[in-house]
Amino acid sequence: MASVAETAEFLQTVRLFRDFDEPALLALTARLRERKLRKGQVLFREGDQGEEMFLVRDGTILVSKAVTGKVEQVLARFGPGDFFGEMTLFDRSPRSATIQAESDTVLLALDRQNLTQLIEVNPRAAAAFFHSLVQVFIERLRASGELVAEITRWGLEATGLDMESR
């Protein structure tokens, strides 16, 4: 188990919290819960209900989405400093993908209640948090567009379909 100071130091490297001052980081540290995953262990599955977002402290996480039967598409791979699972805190929808550990992993969990309290207590930190969040969402949208283009290209190449001369 990491100390409060170590956790606060780690949080400074997380993009969402990089504009937090020290008291805000220490307050956040107290609200986080550590969660360990063994290699291959599933954290949650697509369709599950969720109340928490997660920060990757150590290890690698795979994000996948069901395609057919036992086959899933790998959407992303997250390492230390990355975060995931925040959407369900805002729209209360079921999880949109499955999360599993690619290696032994340590996560920090922040639930909805603690996030709400953090926002209410420290509006300046909350503004910094949401600003960073929007930037990440924009990057994620761009990456999703690239992924769609890549999958389309995969399909065209795999079927030999020549659209240019049709």
């Binding site: 993009r15 949650f44 697509e46 969720g50 977002m53 990757v56 994000v63 598409q73 790998v74 959407l75 992303a76 791979r77 997250f78 390492g79 400093g81 990355d82 975060f83 995931f84 699972g85 925040e86 959407m87 369900t88 999880r95 949109s96 993908a97 999360i99 969040l133 990440v136 969402f137 990057e139 994620r140 990456a143 690239e146 992924l147 283009a149 890549e150 999958i151 290209r153 995969w154």
Partner: peptide, 16 residues
Amino acid sequence: MGTGGHGPRHGVAVTD
């Protein structure tokens, strides 16, 4: 669920 961070590292590479 959302997936974000230092920019998602997708399972497929970006078009080169």
